[in-house]
């Protein structure tokens, strides 16, 4: 196959794959929308002065942090019935929603671990340090976009599943590598600019926070670096936070 022919195949299937990528975004946004409030709730529980509440928040966070979502994806797909009867009403759970629920568990664990120091900073009226939560959260959203591709294994028609369909439909081995690389380009083009932007935002906030810190406490180093979770030091925004892989 010539380069022109390969380009032609990719161009022909572009609308189909683009529609798949919309699924990835919808799935990821839903995941964050489910996981974030739950994670915030856990963080507030952990920040509570009452020991029983903070302890249960701690436990639930540990659970969310250590359940591999790829396994949960299979778990929910196989075990959760597609329909529930709640008060006579039938509630259906589509496969993509199951994928969202599985991924939301990781989000809850991450948000809980990262919102806790933010809450403490807020209570100490250290707004710039608390705002560091925003770029961290946005970067985790990007990690969830990457992880949304795993929904293909339970049949959600997102871009990887569609790339598989295209490979099957075209039926030419030469084109396969290019179809998968093309799907990668979609992820990279959508996520990299946002990641760069967050890098800049984080650096500015960090700068403000550090400046404020040194104004208040002289040159004493900050005791809490806002990482939480399994990592002891500040997790760079650029990688999957330690222990928090979805």
């Amino acid at each position: 196959m010539t380069a022109a022919e390969i380009a032609d195949v990719l161009w022909t299937w572009t609308p189909y794959m683009a529609a798949g990528f919309v699924w990835n975004i919808v799935l990821s946004v839903t995941t964050m929308a489910i996981g974030t409030p739950v994670g915030l709730m856990l963080a507030f529980m952990r920040a509570s002065p009452r020991r029983r509440i903070s302890r249960s928040g701690e436990l639930a966070t540990g659970l969310a942090r250590n359940l591999p979502t790829f396994v949960m994806l299979f778990y929910l797909a196989y075990v959760l019935p597609p329909e529930f009867k709640v008060l006579g009403e039938t509630v259906t759970i589509a496969p993509w929603l199951k994928a969202s629920l599985a991924l939301a568990i990781a989000v809850a664990g991450f948000v809980s671990d990262n919102a806790l120091p933010a809450i403490r900073h807020l209570r100490a009226h250290d707004t710039p340090a608390a705002l560091l939560f925003v770029p961290a959260w946005t970067n985790y959203f990007l990690i969830i976009v990457m992880a949304s591709s795993t929904a293909s294994v339970i049949g959600v028609p997102e871009i990887v599943q569609r790339a598989n369909t295209v490979v099957g439909a075209v039926g030419n081995v030469d084109v396969m590598l290019w179809v998968y690389l093309y799907a990668m380009v979609w992820f990279f083009a959508a996520c990299w600019p946002l990641a760069r932007a967050m890098h800049v935002v984080r650096r500015r906030l960090k700068h403000h926070a550090d400046a404020r810190q040194s104004r208040i406490a002289g040159d004493a180093p900050s005791a809490d670096d806002g990482s939480g979770g399994n990592g002891a030091r500040a997790t760079p925004t650029s990688t999957v936070p330690a222990g928090h892989a979805p």
Binding site: S148, V160, L177, Y180, F187, F188, S238
Partner: peptide, 24 residues
């Protein structure tokens, strides 16, 4: 290279190497 690896799904990386490069 790290940015490239990070901003593409590991699942696709597996497919590219195993099936794509595997075919070559």
């Amino acid at each position: 290279a790290a940015a490239l690896l990070r901003m593409t799904p590991p699942l696709l990386q597996l497919y590219v190497v195993f099936f794509g490069v595997g075919a070559l």
